[in-house]
């Protein structure tokens, strides 16, 4: 594209702050992480245990009724190894994984920590269906965020 010096570009930054209410269900889940517990929500109609936990079953359209502890073992359902640096996102390479923790009916996203290598080498060592395990940070480092644990290969 030819640069034209008659055209101006106006630089603008725009900041908007949000305070997202976590609500009772998300708050209880995140507090559970502080105790090293991962819990899903049970649907009284279809019996599914959903993660991320939610107050209602999207399918049966009724309120979920109880907490069910899941994991720490589970199955890798999908993964990717990020090779490219994106602005404001972490330094590559890193692995994003969806794993279905034992006792739950849906998969939860988290980072998967493994020995680093080239993207191809890391891909060689991962497969859909592989067993994984949720590993918590030491108690003193937990922040009641989803990143209080991560996955490792079992």
């Amino acid at each position: 594209m030819v640069q034209r010096d008659d055209l101006l570009v106006l630089g603008v930054d725009w900041h908007v702050h949000y305070d997202h209410s976590a609500g009772e269900i998300v708050s209880a889940f995140l507090k559970g992480l502080g105790n090293g517990v991962i819990q899903g929500r049970h649907c009284p109609l279809c019996g599914a245990v959903w993660l991320p936990p939610r107050a209602y079953c999207e399918r049966c359209f009724v309120a979920t009724d109880q907490w069910v502890s899941v994991g720490p073992g589970g199955v890798l359902e999908a993964f990717t190894i990020v090779g490219q640096k994106f602005d404001n996102l972490p330094e590559p390479p890193y692995v994003i994984a969806f794993a279905r923790l034992d006792g739950s009916d849906s998969s939860l996203a988290n980072f998967l920590t493994m020995t680093l290598g080239s993207v191809e080498e890391m891909a060689e060592r991962l497969a859909v269906g592989q067993r994984i395990r949720a590993e918590f940070k030491p108690e003193s480092q937990r922040q009641l965020r989803i990143t209080d644990f991560h996955y490792v290969l079992a």
């Binding site: 997202h20 976590a22 998300v26 995140l30 991320p52 359902e77 999908a78 993964f79 990717t80 990020v82 490219q84 994106f86 602005d87 404001n88 996102l89 972490p90 890193y94 994003i96 969806f98 939860l108 996203a109 988290n110 980072f111 859909v128 965020r145 989803i146 990143t147």
Partner: peptide
Amino acid sequence: QFILNLIWDPFFERDFALNTITMAALQTVR
């Protein structure tokens, strides 16, 4: 791609650098 990270659930999914490219990669692996 930073903006496309803000489409995800703020409590459970934004922290993992999900964006449209990583989302497509996860699907493609399956």
